[in-house]
Write a protein that binds this DNA or RNA. Sequence first.
RNA 1: GCUGGAGUGGCGGAAUUGGUAGACGCAGCGGAUUCAAAAUCCGCCGUUGAUGAGACGUGUGGGUUCGAGUCCCACCUCCAGCACCA
Length: 825
Amino acid sequence: MNADYDPEDIETRWQSTWEAQGVYRAGAQGGEPYYLLEMFPYPSGRIHMGHVRNYSIGDAHCRYLRMKGFDVLHPIGWDAFGMPAENAAIKNNSHPGKWTYANIKEMRDQLQRMGLSYDWDRELATCHPGYYRWEQKIFLEMLERGIAYRSKQWVNWDPVDQTVLANEQVVDGCGWRSGAPVEKRELESWSIRITDYADELLSDLEQLDQWPDAVRAMQRNWIGRSIGARIDFPMDGADDLEPITVFTTRPDTLLGCTYMALAAEHPLALELARRAGTQEAVSAFIEQVQADKSAAGHGDIKEKKGIFTGMHAQHPLTERKIPIWIANFVLMDYGTGAVMSVPAHDQRDFEFARTYGLDLIPVIQPPDLEAPLEADTMEAAYEGGGTLFNSPGFDGLDFEAAKTAISEKLKASQRGGPTINFRLRDWGVSRQRYWGCPIPVVYCDNCSIVPVPDDELPVELPQDVSFSGAGSPLADHPTWKHVECPQCGGPAVRETDTFDTFWESSWYFLRYLDPRNESQPFSPEAVQKWFPVDHYIGGVEHACMHLLYARFFTKFLADAGYFETREPFTRLTTQGMVIKDGAKMSKSKGNVVDPNEIIDRYGADTARLFMLFAAPPEKELEWNPNGVEGSYRFLRRVWRLGLAAAEVEETDLPENLSKGDRDLRRSTHWMLKKVGHDIEQHLHFNTAIAAIMEHMNAVSSSGLGGDLKVHPAVAREAMVCSVQALAPFAPHIADELWFKLGGEKPLITCPWPEVDEEAAAADEVTIAIQVMGKLRGTVQVPAGASKDDILAAAKGDANVQRHLDGKTIVKEIVVPGRLVNFVAR
RNA sequence: GCUGGAGUGGCGGAAUUGGUAGACGCAGCGGAUUCAAAAUCCGCCGUUGAUGAGACGUGUGGGUUCGAGUCCCACCUCCAGCACCA
């Protein structure tokens, strides 16, 4: 009679039933809307354990919320543009789209085998023109509002992927995808003024109180707001040149400035050298710096090097002559690419000055030092605070007051003033690749940059391309780029760069709301109903790229009038990595476990259960084959007990329950309460599942399947509730048993069981008894026992008496339901 | 260096936020069942002690408290992100 647990049979049957009944469709049941989203996958070909974990977490939450009566939107799609498709196309001499769609099909099958609760009607692929036409439109709105601009600038060039990278995409000086050392190139390209939103992106982090602190901190660092001053240094003896502007956080040390340093890429570097006649040496130095950077792979500079340009600036307050140097440690990417050097109070400047024999002028006196700082005896820069000296007009001021005083003075004489500087740079979005969304502009000799008119969108990628050449197939295409200028009708050429693929993922969560809309990117009604995303789940590696861009897009779209919401993701969960043998799973380490094999062997329910049980979502998860086996063993146990319960006669709960009945009912309802609580409070599925396991131990002890020691109705209830509680984690086996126990609709469409608080409450509690804070015994008392009764019972304990013997109790502490502590002398 | 986080049995991890440290699972040990195996079931399982009483025990050292894994001070180690950021 007892068929063995056969996950494959159960899972395929339920997956088709669910699909046939459309139980996952958003709006299928009504209820309060809830938008639950996991980061969509790149269709690389196969899903990996990281995906399985990510989607198991999201699915468990989704199923729980559905049972709690929410109308959950839970969509899935494909982040389908990107380099791997193009590389595969080059290798196989085929088309990236072919590779991409084949992978999507493969991965869709895999996800469906996991039995995930997605609304597949909303599936989207970002490489589809029906998707990307709307991001072209959004770009044109950015262009119109001055948020998108084209400029010639120094960019990060990935020599392997043959494309430009944004700052965020350079990791340790290497391309985030290719791993190749990044080079600096000067290119015409498109940028997005994300820096216009720097302040808001920073300050709104405050309100994201359901985001992990780590992610907020990373974004805060990334945006890098610092308060300081902008200071203009006029040129000495070259009146036709603009002053050199620097940014400093220490305007109080301005009088200690003895030289200036420019980045090698600074536009004035060569110009100054040309005027001073040091061109040859300086350009050799600049080339050396560039070569060192490429060779080191990183921005890692071993020793500080520099060269004097031969030119001088004037100190903005004293008009003293300030030599202008070029130095390898000055970054063009930060501030203005030029710094004022105060060697007495900045360690880098100090080292540089000592190397090249430059002057030191100490101007801040440390508060705990009696003798004044002296240039000749200093062994390191003093970077702390103190009182100003050697600073005519500011001597005696505290350094903090001096920051303001000097900034204001500069402002008054129009030589700078207080300012706030950000580390965040504008977002360079041009990519010299084919498999991306075309940037919808054309270049016309008469009209310059012309946006593609709305009725000509989307600008589609041509299908007939060859990947033989080194550059972009779009640039090499014989006809595609040649068009009539939309403005003057003359000959024009299309932009052949495509967008950074982070462009697609910056707004896909909005397209899900209305994925087939052909007249707008999404309807206001859909946004009104679902946006923002209530809970977003994904990997922490996107903390500073995707999540920052998505926040920016949302703010821009709000400003463009699409909606009011200014933050896209209310709650964020960043799940930990799946590791094996202490290391991230990777082909090179040979420690990859293929989800397919696990599902073949144990079924999806076991794989999911293990992933949720082994660790809370935000922690790393160590893949443990024995642990998987344990989860499988548990489900088999549930299966047997479930079948046994289905055999038990169906009756009402009796009026009078035996102690055994009450104990099992307490276990049942305590478990339900605990599962609900753990999911709602912290998404701690691991402790929720532990509670179900604990309860199953109690069910097992009740004799179910053998000599039943409890009332049949109590035993049935115990199993029915277990199956319901298990539904978010192992949905297939849960539905199968649910139907065997008399259920008529899939559990995801059924309400979460009510906790019977009375049954869940204990009628007896164990009180710990301490003497002087040390545990000396325990005692069982009725749940509502009075303090006096508890104390009496505690004093009755033989061991406690032994420890109190010969002592006087000076204090009795009673924590109701918990413990008693006797303080005795 | 800066920022964020974490240190609990052989392992993954619990501990209602100041109240019996080690739930649940894995591994291990012992037993039942079996001709045997698989599967299943029961018991033990921080260290020490003897199966008892006890002592010790949540990275280290102090402190607050009747009572500290939890709070305070100082330190150590590990992980992650950023890093010559002016």
